[in-house]
Design a protein around this nucleic acid. Sequence first.
DNA 1: TTTTTTGCTAAAAAAATGTTAAAATTTTCT
DNA 2: AGAAAATTTTAACATTTTTTTAGCAAAAAA
Lengths: 234, 234
Amino acid sequence: MHKFTVLVVEDEKNICDFISKVLTSHDYRVSCASTGKEALSLASSLCPDIILLDLGLPDLDGIEVIQKIRSWSGNPIIVISARSLEDDKVQALDAGADDYLTKPFGTSELLARIRTSLRHSNKISSNGLPQHPFRAKGLEIDFFKRNITVNGQAIHLTPIEYKIVAFLAQNSGKVMTYSAVMNNVWGPYAESDNKILRVNMANIRRKLENNPAQPIYIFTEVGVGYRMVDEDIL
Amino acid sequence: MHKFTVLVVEDEKNICDFISKVLTSHDYRVSCASTGKEALSLASSLCPDIILLDLGLPDLDGIEVIQKIRSWSGNPIIVISARSLEDDKVQALDAGADDYLTKPFGTSELLARIRTSLRHSNKISSNGLPQHPFRAKGLEIDFFKRNITVNGQAIHLTPIEYKIVAFLAQNSGKVMTYSAVMNNVWGPYAESDNKILRVNMANIRRKLENNPAQPIYIFTEVGVGYRMVDEDIL
DNA sequence: TTTTTTGCTAAAAAAATGTTAAAATTTTCT
DNA sequence: AGAAAATTTTAACATTTTTTTAGCAAAAAA
């Protein structure tokens, strides 16, 4: 049975420990962060199934943390805050939070809201990976085996190259901005300059495309980002 | 632009009227039901984009209403209730409600939670733009994927061209003054001369229109601005 | 008709992206 | 540990795409 991973972001240690204990006893796997920076790195490296976020962090503005995570990930975020002002709620929800819980709250309500959020993000399976391999025009990506073939021929990609391709494939048809890709691959503190991404894309295309100058799998939208071709309909 | 339909289920007439007024003034289409039975039949016939449900109904148990609706529809349900007991919330959420709001609540929080729910059901995307594409006379604009097609044929627009078209489409039917478009695209310090906008419009029409001299999508109101054709009714 | 406004084309300037090779770093293997 | 291999990053430069500018034609308003 798969355990869901919860990232708890909370600077008060006793609250964090309490939530941690409750969740662990209900069969969640829990990680904790006590600062905004820690939260961002863990959100990126851990890919938790859900994030509980206290807005009163010592280093970063809570709203910015939400927006940053939202810019490259769809992880559900439940805000937990002592502030009960309506404006705070509106801000957080509009920034991309999925729910807003005011302290103090009961543990059974917290658990119920976690279940509801997990239900909402249920389009992807519990490990965050799509259930079926991605197929388009002879390109096949098996996310479980982590291998890629073009017309049956196995293609070797380096870890970074694979991350880029997998991220684009999981959002196929949609233009993913350069910064979304960068943050997804190099984490929340990626450079704003995308030259690294450009050389990786050149290498990826050399391996994937028949004619890299006229790609059929990964298109660039100048000034915006990259787009993976639509998945074949089944 | 498309209006979202909200079904308000509430037996106290003055509350119902109040919510109705608030939502209508924020550009939602509102229908009301005052009993559970009415709610069920309207939920099925109307297929509202979202349902606001008061649990204290005269005829049916609120929890059963949620389950009943959930059995055939994934429409988001936000529970609105005077009962603030934790058990009530847990019950409602586990029955399939997407959110639980305790009376009294502020209108801006209600609106924010409605937006969040619409986002969850993929009706709108994280940037607040409609998730469902704009369609008119064979022109289709998918804001989510950043895709434009004319009669199924993909059209490539540059970032500035896309901004212009998107802005007009989001305000389709209304004349947008040249300065409004300029400010939207080039920011608040845009030039007052609109010659740049004119050449962009020429390029846009060359790509979109069959006969740019007699456009069917973007019209010129001489001396005023541009107007995107009305969206097709569904 | 005259004036104003809008449309169109082509060329320039500017910005963004692709490409290659070499240096730096990490990983793997003996 | 040390060498070899693979990967990642940096840097320089080529190429493509986009944006702006300028000039004139066409259409609409006065």
